[in-house]
Simulated assay, not measured.
Amino acid sequence: MVGGEVAVVSRRGAERLRGGHPWVFRSDVERVPELPAGVVRVEAANGAPLGWALWSPRSEISLRRMEANPERVIDEGWWYDTLRTAIARRAPLAAEANAYRLVHGEGDGLPSLVVDKYGDALVVQLLSAGVDVWTETIVRALRELTGCTGILARNDPAARDREGLPREVKLLFGDVPRTVEVLEHGVRYIAAPWDGQKTGAFLDQRENRVLIGGLARGKALDCFAYHGSFALHLAKRADHVCALDVSAPALARVHEHAERNGLTNIEPVEGDAFDVLRAWHKEGRTFDTIVVDPPAFAKTRGALDGALRGYKDINLQAMKLLAPGGLLFTASCSFHLSRGLFFEMLSEAVADSGRRFALRAFTGQPLDHPELINVPETGYLKGALLEAMG
């Protein structure tokens, strides 16, 4: 299929595209294509060509530019070449992990497309009506490029509602098992492609787990442990690790993962992190290494104020529990919480703690989750490694 329809965008829309951002909103589409969904040519009001974009007629984000060169035809060859380039960037990761992201949407010039690798299986998310039209082409290219044994569509995010698309989990090719063993820098854990968080696991924290795991010592605490991915890395060096989570089923998986790695120093603890940390502080407990990796408190811009209070509170409680010389790794996966606000929140928590903390590292997203400088929507993850100076 070759896009033969034309979308004409406003001056503001054209300036946005020329500035490097791929999105054009509905209010800036002056002439709407007749195509139901797919790929269209994009032009400015004066007829100047602006390349090719995915077209989603029901979405607020109507156009997502995928190709700036108006002479390049969007066909099966284009998808193959662009996917091949994205996959090749991840080649260094194969030496240390068998699970990582192959395509990070706009970050790889493939808007609204996510592809994650779990061993020999792939999990895809087609998050716009425009890209959904190309499902068969994308599957063929991925099969040829990766030699995968199965491709699963985790098309269940809320983003598909805004595109007029059904939410579904659907096998597109071959076989994808219910669980896959992930090997990550010497640590093994189970991912669940069909029904786990995100596409089956939290792949974006891989390097941060290695970072704090390599520095861990003494008594360690993993808050919001979920299935214990941080706890497993901490346990390689720490004497004892408390894996704290509110979910009993999640903690059962922590226990299973500890056994899988031959680790006997992980203690699953069920409870609300906010309440437990306060109680432990009153008891006088301390930890030498703490990880605070909560779920996204700010899923919308309107939730940001409440989220900031939550982030500050949990980090303040962690700071109070940290032994002198101890290390705290803290993160946020909320897109609406900017780096500046994240750092400001940490500064306020430090002030309220009455202690001194040194910033040892400020982290972002790994190689397989590229964040484009001029496309802020490609970035969401930020983290900080702090040292208690007294």
Rank of each mutant, 00 (worst) to 15 (best):
1 M>T: 02
5 E>A: 11
11 R>G: 07
11 R>M: 08
13 G>R: 15
13 G>M: 09
17 L>Q: 14
24 V>T: 12
25 F>S: 02
30 E>I: 05
31 R>Y: 03
32 V>H: 12
33 P>W: 05
34 E>F: 03
37 A>P: 06
39 V>G: 13
39 V>P: 10
44 A>H: 15
45 A>T: 03
46 N>E: 15
54 L>V: 07
63 L>A: 04
66 M>K: 12
70 P>W: 07
71 E>N: 06
71 E>T: 04
71 E>C: 07
73 V>A: 10
74 I>F: 07
77 G>F: 13
77 G>N: 12
84 R>V: 03
90 R>Q: 10
105 G>A: 12
107 G>A: 10
107 G>L: 11
112 S>K: 15
112 S>Y: 15
115 V>Y: 14
116 D>A: 09
117 K>C: 10
117 K>S: 09
120 D>E: 08
120 D>C: 03
121 A>C: 13
123 V>H: 06
123 V>I: 06
124 V>I: 04
128 S>Y: 09
130 G>P: 02
131 V>K: 05
133 V>E: 15
137 T>M: 00
141 A>W: 15
144 E>I: 11
147 G>L: 13
150 G>F: 04
152 L>G: 00
155 N>Y: 13
156 D>E: 03
162 R>F: 11
163 E>D: 07
168 E>R: 09
170 K>R: 14
171 L>P: 00
173 F>I: 06
174 G>W: 01
176 V>I: 11
176 V>W: 12
181 E>D: 09
191 A>M: 06
193 P>A: 02
196 G>N: 05
197 Q>T: 05
201 A>F: 06
202 F>R: 04
203 L>E: 06
206 R>T: 02
207 E>L: 10
209 R>W: 06
210 V>S: 02
211 L>P: 01
212 I>N: 03
216 A>Y: 06
218 G>P: 05
219 K>S: 04
224 F>Y: 12
229 S>H: 11
231 A>G: 12
231 A>K: 13
234 L>K: 08
242 C>R: 09
244 L>R: 04
247 S>P: 10
247 S>D: 13
248 A>K: 08
250 A>C: 14
256 E>C: 05
258 A>C: 08
261 N>H: 14
265 N>S: 15
267 E>D: 08
268 P>D: 10
274 F>I: 03
279 A>R: 12
284 G>N: 08
287 F>A: 04
290 I>E: 13
293 D>N: 06
296 A>G: 04
297 F>H: 00
300 T>G: 05
302 G>A: 01
306 G>D: 02
307 A>T: 12
308 L>H: 10
310 G>P: 06
318 A>S: 00
318 A>F: 00
322 L>F: 05
329 F>G: 00
329 F>N: 01
330 T>E: 01
333 C>R: 15
333 C>P: 10
334 S>I: 09
337 L>K: 10
339 R>M: 11
342 F>C: 08
343 F>N: 00
346 L>T: 00
347 S>C: 01
357 F>V: 01
358 A>R: 07
363 T>H: 07
364 G>S: 14
365 Q>C: 11
365 Q>N: 11
365 Q>K: 15
366 P>T: 03
367 L>Y: 13
369 H>L: 12
370 P>T: 01
378 T>W: 10
381 L>I: 02
381 L>T: 01
383 G>N: 09
383 G>V: 12
385 L>M: 15
